[in-house]
């Protein structure tokens, strides 16, 4: 395997955030640095689906954002033939505008022209079963409704390299099952995929390989089963047989 055939290549990627410590009773905060990632090297080959495992705060989301270009690394390089697309549920939201206006805006952001965007927006709203909310302000949607709409918006294009960050944790079971089929199609069509998830079942079912992040460092890169085993040793509460971490509901994707 050569670098030239990679779908995504990270070389010595580090990320340091500037932050400020605030102590109770003290007037001024003090500057500090938080290490998000430390010398991460990762190669995603064409056709690979790589799982990204780590506990909260290990750097999974930071890594995905750097891969997508939403964050710039403090050092190191991210190389890919095409810019990877991060599928997440955040996005532009103007809460005072209608659901339709917000959806059209996001579709325009994805390159649709005006006429296409309006038609497709109505179709997406229908797909997300939100027809009755079409002309109501976006801030009338519940978290789950936003997740449904956000999911379909996030998956409208077919990126060469797909990055997924805990997509469906807020959605209801019926939607999660339906969305799973859409995701499977996307996974098959993408040239490379990276999935971050707390669900070991999701990782085991979808990923040909997995990496484990711990405190910003990539400590394992190899077969999925071994990655899950290592992670369970780091986190004794992980239930490997059912693919759940204590307190986390099962993911049906």
């Amino acid at each position: 395997m050569t670098d030239a055939s990679a779908a995504l290549l990270l070389k010595d990627v580090s990320k340091v955030f500037k932050a400020r410590k605030r102590y109770a009773g003290k007037l001024f905060s003090t500057p500090t640095e938080v290490v998000g990632l430390k010398n991460v090297n990762l190669r995603v080959g064409r056709g690979e689906v790589v799982g990204l495992i780590g506990e909260n705060g290990s750097g999974k989301t930071t890594l995905l954002k750097i891969m997508s270009g939403a964050l710039t690394p403090s050092s190191g390089k991210v190389m890919a033939p095409f810019r990877p697309r991060l599928i997440s549920l955040s996005g532009l939201q103007l809460p005072n505008l209608s659901v339709l206006e917000n959806t059209v805006l996001m579709l325009r952001a994805h390159g649709r022209d005006a006429r296409e965007a309006n038609q497709e927006a109505l179709e997406l709203i229908e797909l997300a079963e939100l027809e009755e909310k079409t002309y109501l302000p976006y801030n009338t949607l519940s978290t789950g409704m936003r997740a449904r709409l956000g999911f379909y918006l996030a998956t409208i294009n077919e990126p060469e390299v797909l990055l997924m960050d805990e997509m469906l944790s807020v959605a209801d079971e019926r939607f999660t099952a339906a969305a799973g089929k859409t995701l499977q199609v996307k996974l098959q069509r993408a040239h490379g995929v990276v999935i971050a998830s707390h669900s070991m079942e999701t990782i085991a079912r979808n990923c040909t390989r997995a990496v484990v992040l711990n405190k910003g460092e990539l400590i394992f890169d190899g077969p999925t089963k071994e990655a899950i085993d290592l992670y369970s040793k780091l986190r004794p509460g992980v239930d490997r047989s059912e693919g759940r971490i204590d307190g986390t509901p099962p993911d049906t994707v």
Binding site: S68, A70, R85, S90, G91, L92, A109, L153
Partner: peptide, 11 residues
């Protein structure tokens, strides 16, 4: 700009 950058790579 954060949310928009994540989903659309707009700089």
């Amino acid at each position: 700009s954060r949310g928009l950058e994540e989903n659309t790579s707009i700089s």
